[in-house]
Design a protein around this nucleic acid. Structure first.
Length: 592
RNA sequence: CGGAGAGUAGCGCAGCCUGGUUAGCGCGCAUGGUUCGGGACCAUGAGGUCGGCGGUUCGAAUCCGCCCUCUCCGACCA
């Protein structure tokens, strides 16, 4: 009889095999039969049920052994792809002095999302939500010359963001693992070159994790910079949305999405005319009262910015996209104005009009839908009255004409005129051309080829690793549990000994498991003294690609049974190590 | 931050409206036994500050107030 102790003998080949063989009876695999009340998303439920994660507080989780095994594989893929494009792994501190964040103004900009505390000396510290400041500090101390460039650093590290609303388990956590990378270049052209490389590396990473992600044009937002892309996994449970053209030539985050706005058919500009519209405080009410479609109206919307009030005029059937408006105004802080603030500039809420507004201290932003429209209905700036036949720029002027409208499902594509569709999605990665925003703010300069001191040109690139793990499960599961892609599975095979108290069965199971491990597979030997049904269910819940059943029924015929998780295909094999290894490899390697 | 809901054993829940024995049920857990191919069975047992604090009352899981935590929708989200 081959005893377990023999398997563990310290000959090197056996040691490696022994490390690839885990006994379930001695491992930590706390599974749940029932769905937890706290979870909504499939990935969240399954990670709790399969014993992968446990919650410590809202959005803060412990990763258990099963999750760690998968994470190691995901991280390995990420490292390979990052190293392949010249990335160098580093680890930066999680705790940063607040002063560093004050240098770029983001101590303010991030606001309450930043975790903060004081050290014993009373110095203000922050929990790093991202690392542009820290890496730029390193760069300004170390990089002197163009000869040192380009440089690409990355890390895989825990971040903390005190999000107002964590949700969906690992899809939106407060403490989470992120791969973040930062690149430094001597020229815009070199940044462009690297941006294309990392864009491709990201596609490789997600493909290798078995995911079909869609790269979309994104709004750089708080990060600053010019070009930016997000990598989205379409999912009904996504925390984000993007818009894409049915013809496949345009995809963008809703925050920055553009759609075509049709020009009204030409019609003569009619004279202004005041009409009574009692009690009509909304566009819908006015349009209905006057019997015109909402797109023949102009809506006035007010926002408060640090630089004063913004008065936005937009076609009545459209909504203002606050992210686009903020960018048009060159600010990051924007909120709807209060009734008092609106009244203070002489506007009448519900009947506000771009005509006759007090212009001092107010910026009038006209959406580009307005110049394309004719003879609109707008407020008269008098309670109970509207104006007909309002035309821009005949009747009022703008400080700024810009596209500040929210693109909608069904709108037309700005590239080809095709139909745009809104899709919910999980944002898995985000890449940015930062330019010199951080290097200028922090004085990170280098001497270029001409001997001139210039700010470093930077890019930054993130992947939510925990979110990626959850996304893989969102994309690969069924009612029974997870279905891991084979290269990410925590174990490649599970050998279930149905009656481990029967020594001959246990021995057979051990022998087969050891043979599989020696063949290079990671094996979970389910030697727990539990009912067969529980073992079958757990194997499915865990999503292990190949199940080897060592049970008395088949053993009587000197056989074992193998079952593939992905499609439930079952095959029998002689209860011999070589035969079982061969069948297992066959099931693993064979295409879907 | 706005709206909604929930906190009772490790998990899932009932009890609360209408206050009154020793706070229940299923799963899980422990021990013994019987089982052993798709979430077994029998027996015995352990396990509860009923989220916290305060109030009302002879008496509070139950009624009232404040607070905390968690979940969902929205706002927000490099």
């Amino acid at each position: 009889m081959r005893s377990w102790k023999l398997f563990c003998a310290r000959s090197s080949g056996n040691l490696r095999a022994a490390m690839a063989l885990i006994r379930a009876s001695q491992y930590f695999l706390p599974t749940w039969k029932e769905d937890p009340a706290e979870a909504e998303l499939p990935s969240h439920k399954l990670m709790l049920r399969a014993g992968m994660i446990r919650k410590l507080a809202a959005g803060i989780y412990t990763y258990l052994p099963l999750a760690r095994r998968v994470l190691h594989k995901i991280e390995r893929i990420i490292r390979e792809e990052m190293e392949a494009i010249g990335g160098m792994e580093i680890t930066m501190p999680m705790i940063h002095p607040a002063e560093l964040w004050a240098e770029t103004g983001r101590l303010q900009d991030f606001g309450p999302i930043l975790g903060r505390f004081r050290d014993r000396a009373g110095r203000e510290m922050v929990l790093g939500p991202t690392h542009e400041e820290v890496i730029t500090d390193l760069a300004r101390r170390e990089i002197r010359s163009w000869r040192q460039l380009p440089l690409v650093f990355y890390q895989i590290q825990t971040k903390f963001r005190d999000e107002p609303r964590p949700r969906g388990g690992l899809v939106r956590a407060r403490e989470f693992t992120m791969k973040d990378a930062y690149s430094f270049h001597e020229s815009k052209e070199d940044l462009d070159r690297f941006y294309r490389e990392i864009y491709q590396a990201y596609l490789n990473i997600f493909r290798r994790c078995g995911l079909s992600v869609v790269p979309v044009e994104a709004d750089p937002g708080l990060m600053g910079g010019s070009e930016s892309h997000e990598f989205m996994l379409p999912s009904p449970y996504g925390e984000d949305s993007f818009i894409h053209c049915e013809n496949g030539d345009y995809a963008a985050n809703l925050e920055g999405a553009v759609s075509l706005k049709d020009e009204d058919p030409p019609e003569p500009l009619l004279p202004l005319e005041e009409v009574a519209t009692p009690g009509c405080y909304t566009i819908e009410a006015v349009a209905a009262f006057l019997g015109v479609p909402t797109r023949k109206t102009a809506k006035a919307v007010f926002y408060k910015t640090p630089k004063g009030l913004a008065f936005v005029v937009i076609r009545g059937d459209l909504e203002v996209n606050e992210a686009k408006l903020a960018r048009a105004l060159g600010t990051t802080e924007l909120r709807p104005a209060t009734e008092e603030e609106i009244a203070a500039i002489g506007a009448v809420p519900g009947y506000a009009s771009p005509i006759g507004i007090r212009r001092n201290g107010v910026r009038v932003v006209v959406d580009d839908s307005i110049p394309k429209a004719r003879n609109l209905v707008a407020g008269a700036n008098r309670e109970g009255f509207h104006l007909r036949n309002v035309n821009f720029p005949r009747d009022f002027q703008a400080d700024l004409v810009a596209d500040v409208a929210m693109a909608r499902d069904g709108d037309r594509c700005p590239r080809c005129g095709g139909k745009l569709r809104v899709q919910r999605a999980i944002e898995l990665g985000h890449i940015f051309k930062l330019g010199t925003k951080y290097s200028e703010a922090m004085g990170a300069n280098f001497l270029d080829r001409a001997g001139k001191s210039r700010p470093l040109i930077m890019g930054c690139y993130g992947i939510g690793v925990g979110r990626l793990l959850a996304a893989v499960i969102e994309a690969h599961h069924d009612e029974a549990g997870i279905i891991w892609p084979e290269n990410l599975a925590p174990f490649e095979t599970v050998v279930s000994v149905l009656d481990p108290r029967e020594p001959s069965l246990l021995n057979l199971g051990e022998e087969l498991a050891f043979a599989l491990a020696r063949a290079g597979l990671e094996v979970l030997l389910d030697d727990r003294d539990q009912s067969a049904g529980e073992k079958f269910h757990d194997a499915k819940l865990w999503g292990i690609p190949v199940l080897v059943v060592v049970g008395p029924r088949a053993a009587r015929q000197n056989q074992v049974e193998l079952e593939r998780r992905r499609d439930g295909v079952k095959v029998a094999a002689p209860a011999q190590p070589e035969a079982v290894v061969e069948k297992a490899l066959e099931l693993l390697r064979a295409g879907a």
